[in-house]
Nucleic acid binder design. Structure first.
Length: 254
DNA sequence: ATGGCGTCCGAGGGACGA
């Protein structure tokens, strides 16, 4: 079972690219973030005709997440980790015995904005809510909006203390690992400077000025089934690309 | 560098992203 996470930065603006990528790579599970549309505007038929079940939590203009799965989804949770949050940032389902959580974690704005404490509080709630599933096969994937370490940042000095790299954010990320989860990409790859996001501005992709902020955190039983995690950085270089690349966790069947 | 680029909303520029 292959599980891909991809912040598409508007599913409607990106639909041609998303469908082409699905047709080429056939992920078993695809977690999408930043849909930027409400559920009725989601192009579900295009996904269903390709063999996917679709569960979504849409929102107008901002945020919005969806899970696409070739296998049936059960125990769907919409609105995670804060069920009352007006911002649509989390959806989860059980797929073939694996609890899959798909997240669009808050950006955090600037450190002195009210978006920053919102992000930290959101992570505190996430940690609390994930505890209920940490003892069973669990994959937490998505756009975390945190670069866990300096090796995940193209210019650590320039980014030091900035949002996505600040110490309180990295502490929140570590607390998720402390639940018994593993940063699966880092488990397989020790090299620095592999990124999943590159700024549209300043020719960021061509200069490989990026951050690794899209992750799969997994429990030990999932890690034992994992064979690799891959970043399709070429997708980022295609015309009308999202600023995030798709990232895929590859699992053996049980 | 309160910028660069891209998307949305809605009809002009502001909000937001990371």
């Amino acid at each position: 079972m292959n599980i891909t996470t991809w912040n598409v930065n508007s599913v409607r603006a990106r639909l041609e690219r998303v469908l082409a990528w699905i047709d080429a790579y056939q992920p078993d599970v695809l977690g999408l973030q930043e849909l930027k549309c409400q559920d009725p505007e989601l192009p579900v038929e295009a996904f269903r005709s390709r063999g996917y079940h679709v569960e979504s939590l849409g929102q107008k203009t901002y945020n919005g997440v969806a899970l696409l799965s070739k296998r049936p989804m059960t125990d769907v949770v919409r609105g995670f980790p804060n069920p009352d949050d007006p911002q649509a940032r989390g959806i989860s389902a059980v797929i073939d015995g694996v609890r899959v959580v798909n997240l669009y974690c808050p950006n955090g704005g600037d450190l002195d904005s009210d978006k920053y404490p919102y992000k930290l509080g959101w992570y505190d709630r996430l940690e609390m809510e994930l505890r209920q599933w940490a003892g069973q096969p669990l994959v937490v994937c998505g756009d975390f909006n945190i670069a866990p370490a300096d090796g995940d940042v193209w210019d650590p000095k320039r980014w030091e203390g900035q949002v996505l790299c600040s110490v309180p954010e990295r502490e929140r990320f570590q607390r998720l690992l402390d639940l018994g989860l593993t940063d699966s990409w880092r488990h397989f790859h020790k090299e620095p400077n592999v990124f999943t996001w590159w700024d549209y501005r300043g020719n960021g992709y061509a200069l490989n000025q990026g951050l690794r902020i899209d992750h799969h955190l997994v429990t030990k039983d999932i890690l034992a089934r994992a064979t690799d995690v891959t970043v399709d950085h070429e997708e980022r270089g295609r015309p009308q690309a999202s600023d995030h690349a798709p990232v895929t966790l590859h699992l053996r069947d049980r």
